[in-house]
Design a protein around this nucleic acid. Sequence first.
DNA 1: GCAGGGTGATTCCAATTTGAACAACATGCC
DNA 2: GGCATGTTGTTCAAATTGGAATCACCCTGC
Lengths: 154, 154
Amino acid sequence: MAGMKEIRWLDEREMAAWTAFLEASHRVFRSVEQQLKDDAGLSHPQYEILVKLAAAGRAGIRMTELADSLITSKSGLTYQVGQLEKRGLVARRACPTDVRGVTATLTEAGRTALAEAAPGHVARVREALIDTLDREELATLARAFARVGQRLRD
Amino acid sequence: MAGMKEIRWLDEREMAAWTAFLEASHRVFRSVEQQLKDDAGLSHPQYEILVKLAAAGRAGIRMTELADSLITSKSGLTYQVGQLEKRGLVARRACPTDVRGVTATLTEAGRTALAEAAPGHVARVREALIDTLDREELATLARAFARVGQRLRD
DNA sequence: GCAGGGTGATTCCAATTTGAACAACATGCC
DNA sequence: GGCATGTTGTTCAAATTGGAATCACCCTGC
């Protein structure tokens, strides 16, 4: 059996963690997505874009940087920013330092839309996840997932 | 300000947990999806369908039951089962107790495909998530997320 | 300066997802 | 029995996604 690697299956605890993670995260995303769509007419990717742009201020962010921080593909980002631009929530500008570059910025309407969407979104995030966890679980989750995200970033 | 609810924003700890959860879960899913696509030609939803069917044995499962346990929409399930049926990995039968019903079952080829895909998948799940967590984090995650999933099921 | 390789964003296409509409059937209640 | 109501699974159209190809541009080394 040369080259045959030993397979380390998941034991009961590991499997329980994995399946719980799968179900819970799917349901949380679905719940959050639903709320945003119903109450603000935004998809979650779109909401995340608005949040990142709000944090970036007047300067805006480069498309690639946005795509990296949002995990979606570049083409997906182009599409979503296009949608937001159609609605007047986001503006595109040529990047000053790189002619190829495009920086996206939040418009006033975008800032308003985000401000109106945020309370309902936060409430749903609490309902779906945060308020279900106690203080210690919250801390553990934050620490562990920060590490997981960190590792996968490379 | 009648009817005005106080908005409970996320404090620093809560926000850290939420953003870490968002990033980590996106990256984990992306990583797992990639591995399955590259090594087995399966999407993660398809893999999950095969797993559920394998667990169901000869009797198979009703479509609706499958859709519920997999979180996807009914029409999405119809599509994916259709794809798997095309490849001969899954078979559909009329349900004995309900003429409208359809039960999906795993074919021999499906069982084989799952057996071949499983080792690589498990290895990636370990790499992306499980092996990054220590014993206590794993237990906390399993317990907390089981509760989260439970609540959202209603 | 300028060739070559790499980068930034978009476009295009095929695959997938979802909700609504639909048809056929089940179920409970009178 | 007969009807109102809810289920079951599929089909349809519209929206979204990711990857490959593309075009224009930056940059390094020579």
